[in-house]
Design a protein around this nucleic acid. Structure first.
Lengths: 336, 336
DNA sequence: AGGATCATCCAAAACGTTTTGGGAGTCAAT
DNA sequence: ATTGACTCCCAAAACGTTTTGGATGATCCT
């Protein structure tokens, strides 16, 4: 209702003084400041956000891209993360806008819109690819951004990621220690960094154990993708006795295939992400997850520090992976 | 990089003309428009969002409040809905900001910040209470908003809601038809409209059947809340043979209690919301859900029409509830 | 020729802030 | 009395757009 001019007029002061009083500058007397503060409170005055943004050349917004393409929308615990991120950003006066890619527009176009229209101060990218055109674009513009997941970009950039290689390496080695020899990998498209890293971890472990790496399939990172991959594996004469899955969604699809073909759990399975849903599947899904606590808070912090101009090298978090052992990984290797 | 002034200068035109050319006004010649358009494309020009917002007195933003308080963050399929909503809003040039309530601030304070600071053009409220102070505030300001869920406000406002009364009424009557006589209700705090409506539906059915309505408990709308309510019910001498639960999360907690106390499904259970997770519980959770297709799209449409000034009465959607029958509701009444 | 109509363009105002670059006035030291 | 330092305040510019209210010619009609 009230703007600065009206407020100033009603106080017999200039807009400058009122503005500076409210912003806590030292060149306004304590008495005046108090008078201004009270009047502002009484009038319920809040500075017009658009005006301030224009003047300060900051959008006070951060956008997060939501890939709506394969299967569902990102990991399912995403909203919790975003909510935490938004809350911490709000503490610094930034709001978080969610930006699903509109039908008929590429994710790159969307970045362009946000960046060139100065709609946001930074971007949060999820589901990075090994060669990610969004990353390249933002780097070419010198625009602040943080990714969830690494890339193979030669120029460094801020990211938070789990050490998928080590996680899948360890999971595979553990299967080997448990006596498994035919350990399959059900992966996601290798253009995604996370999918590639996880597959590499599996592959390195297999080589280390002197095992062949041909029990390997890629599918869409969805329940359906996992289902189809499992069907293909079950049809082989050299069936695996254990399967490591790139994502929990895929692992759940694998469990469904096992139920349908063998009537239950006939092969050990482990997933990745620790979706809440995994606790309720039968058998309960064994999985892995990133350590590191409040992810949303970390993203918010990295975004703020990126905007503040900290160099990318100091803004990279690689978190260890830990096992979440439930029931699906415990089958002896001779089950088939 | 480029702003209107620079673009105009490089073309030997005024900013007025360039602006109007790009906006498709008819008072600029076709030749000039083309010339401008091409130059703008080449320069990758996009109008500065803050400047336009200030001038047009529109924030081009809509905020959705995320209640982070009880249990998890809203229904778990929330992100899909929000994503759909954001996508359709984007088609009209609006972005969606997610606004979790910051620590130590009330949801009302947050509304105030957004409204009085003109940070958004409309708000989307979820988890309405019967008497909702956010609704009252927005109404007092004459500010556009849409709620997910009704309220008991005397002044009408736009909403989308499921007909919880009828859904719970029908579910209870069906249990009765199946022979159940001791049908319990595990509800959420009655200050929430949805919780009250659902309880009323159950209660009306019980009365209609001439049954007592004392098998009735309220708890937090979380898995834990459902668990605790079920423990209390199972300890009674007049145990129920069927339970209708206000939410799927609560129903899942009830299933856990049944497993722990009776070692499996000993009582019929039905939930509400059709969480994806329900398909994976054992037994698979029978539930209900709102009909009506793409919820996000509907919210976006209502928001746009509210902003456009359509009267609230034409912007109210009450959707029927349908059963999603899986396994948990099929037990005969004498199971106990 | 004079007026009306039309097509095309533009200067300036406006949106509401924040920031710049001082301007008064007071007080103390010289 | 002048100078300098200090306190408190303010006018005006700036941010980049959209919109208002014409201005300038050209064309057409009578």
């Amino acid at each position: 209702m009230a703007n600065l001019k009206q407020l100033a007029q009603s106080l017999g002061l200039s807009v400058t003084t009122v503005s500076r009083a409210l912003d806590g500058y030292s060149d306004v007397s304590a008495a005046t400041r108090q008078r201004v503060q009270e009047a502002a409170d009484k009038a319920g005055y809040r500075p017009n956000a658009s005006a301030r943004r224009l003047r300060k050349q900051r959008a006070e917004l951060v956008a997060v891209t939501l890939p709506s393409e394969p299967g569902h929308i990102g990991p399912l615990h995403f909203l919790d993360m975003l909510s935490g991120c938004a809350e911490h950003l709000a503490g610094a006066g930034l709001n978080l806008v969610i930006a699903p890619v509109p039908h008929g527009e590429s994710e790159l176009d969307m970045c362009r819109r946000f960046v060139d229209g100065r709609r946001v101060d930074a971007m949060l990218l999820v589901r990075t690819k090994r060669h990610d055109e969004r990353v390249e674009f933002l780097q070419s513009r010198g625009f602040p951004f943080v990714t969830n997941g690494r890339t193979e970009s030669v120029i460094q950039h801020p990211y938070i990621d789990g050490d998928g290689f080590s996680g899948f390496n360890a999971a595979t080695l553990r299967f080997h220690r448990d006596g498994h020899r035919r350990i399959a990998h059900v992966g996601a498209p290798q253009e995604y960094f996370f999918a590639h890293a996880r597959r590499q971890g599996w592959e390195a472990a297999m080589r280390e154990c002197g095992l062949a790496t041909d029990l390997d399939l890629q599918q869409a990172p969805t329940e359906q993708g996992g289902y189809e991959a499992a069907l293909a594996l079950l049809a082989r004469s050299d069936r695996p006795t254990a399967i490591v899955c790139a994502t929990d969604e895929m692992a759940i699809g694998v469990l469904r295939a096992l139920r349908e073909v063998d009537g239950g759990l006939s092969i050990s399975v482990i997933g990745h992400d620790d979706l809440p849903i995994g606790a309720f599947t039968s058998p309960a899904l064994s999985t892995m997850r990133m350590t590191g606590g409040n992810l949303g808070r970390s993203f918010a912090s990295l975004l703020l520090r990126t905007i503040a101009g900290e160099p990318a090298e100091t803004l990279q978090e690689l978190h260890a992976i830990e096992f979440v052992d439930r029931d699906s990984h415990r089958l002896p290797p001779i089950a088939a």
